[in-house]
Every structure is written in C-alpha cells, then in structure tokens.
C-alpha cells in the first residue's frame, strides 16, 4: 500500500494513475463531506479540491495527515463556493448554517430515518460545528488532526465539539417525536456505520 503523501508527490510530478488512486481512496469522504452541503455541485467541488491539492496551492508540507490536509483544502473550497453564492456579508461559518445559505437541494446518501433526522439537524447548526462534528465522527479525525484540518487550536476543537453536540442535540430534540429518546452520542456513533 502506497502512502498518500507519495501518491500526491507522484501525481504532482504528472503521474495521473497515482492521482486516480488518491481519488478513489478519498472520493467517498469528500463526496460525503460536500454532498449534504452543496448537493449536486459536489462533483464540481470535489474536482476543485483535488485540483487544488495537486497544484499545491496550499503548500502542503506533509507534517499532518493527508486526510487532514485534504479537508483543509475542501473546507476552503466550500467557503469560497458559499461566499460566491450568498452575499459576502451574510456568510459567517460561526453562525450561518447550510440551511440558511440555501444551496441547491440534494438527495443525500442516508437511508434510515434517524439518519435523515441527523442530516437535517446538522444542516441547521452553524457550519463550523457541522464541519467539526462530521470530521470527527465520520472521518474519524482525531482532535489533533481536526486542529490541523480546521486550522485552530486543539482547545477550540474540543469546545466546538462540545458546543456542536449541544446544538445538534437541541436540533434533534425539536425534530424527534416524543417517543424516541435520542441519545445524540449514540446516534452519531451509529452513523459511523454509514461509512461501512
């Protein structure tokens, strides 16, 4: 198994096959990342992200995991895209949620009811939290990897996780019927199965 860094290096040198392997490896993660935020435009953004990595625009130094690096790039592309779509002044990932930014609708690759709930809820909390939670639970980035990917200190990561969970729980409670006692944590954990 070739290392991601090596593949990237090879790709940057012009080896398209290496790029193909990288794409295949990380496509799903990117797809998931973008899909529930920008819907049909996901493929465009994935492409932009990949192009940005190969062109080395962000000066990847190789001192964090490729995954984390990839998500940094992805995040930048996402914000760029969202800024273009909404008015600059409105866009603030601290407070704006995808819901507010109204990207085009998409059919999400979730299957079960709870997943729908969760996805809906995620879209309604501030974007920063959404990213943090998703990357942590779905991409299973550790807190230090998250700190790299989000370009913030570890402490901030932890507090975002905490606040993000709280916000998500509140959103879920609004949606969920009185019968279901929703344990946010378990829902998030169970969603790890999504990846499977």
């Amino acid at each position: 198994m070739v290392d991601d860094h090596e593949l990237l290096a090879a790709w940057r040198r012009g080896d398209q096959a290496a790029g193909g392997v990288l794409l295949q490896r990380h496509f799903r993660a990117l797809y998931r990342f973008f899909r529930n935020k920008v819907g049909n435009q996901a493929d465009d953004l994935i492409q932009l992200t990949m192009l940005a990595t190969v062109k080395g625009r962000d000066g990847f130094r190789g001192d964090c995991s490729f995954r984390a690096y990839l998500f940094i790039v992805a995040r930048h592309e996402l914000f760029r895209f969202l800024r273009k779509r909404s008015h600059e002044a409105d866009f603030d990932p601290q407070t704006s949620s995808i819901y507010d930014l109204r990207p085009s609708p998409s059919a999400v690759a979730g299957a079960r009811g709870e997943q729908v709930l969760l996805l809906e809820a995620l879209r309604c909390i501030p974007l920063q939290y959404q990213l943090t939670l998703e990357l942590h639970y779905w991409e299973e980035l550790s807190t230090s990897e998250l700190a790299e990917a989000l370009e913030v200190p570890v402490g901030t990561v932890k507090s975002r996780l905490r606040r993000g969970r709280a916000a998500l729980e509140a959103e879920l409670k609004r949606r969920v019927s009185r019968d279901d006692a929703t344990d946010t944590e378990s829902v998030l954990r169970s969603l790890a199965l999504l990846r499977g």
């Binding site: 398209q16 794409l23 496509f27 899909r35 996901a42 493929d43 492409q47 990949m50 192009l51």
Partner: peptide
Amino acid sequence: ADSLDEARALAKVWSGLF
C-alpha cells in the same frame, strides 16, 4: 456504492481530472 450519484460523480470527477 451508496448511490449511483456517487458513482456518477466519481466518473465525472475522474473524467474532469484525467
């Protein structure tokens, strides 16, 4: 694949990149 969308997207990105 989770959906055909994913496969389609992959195909699209693939062809766009390569």
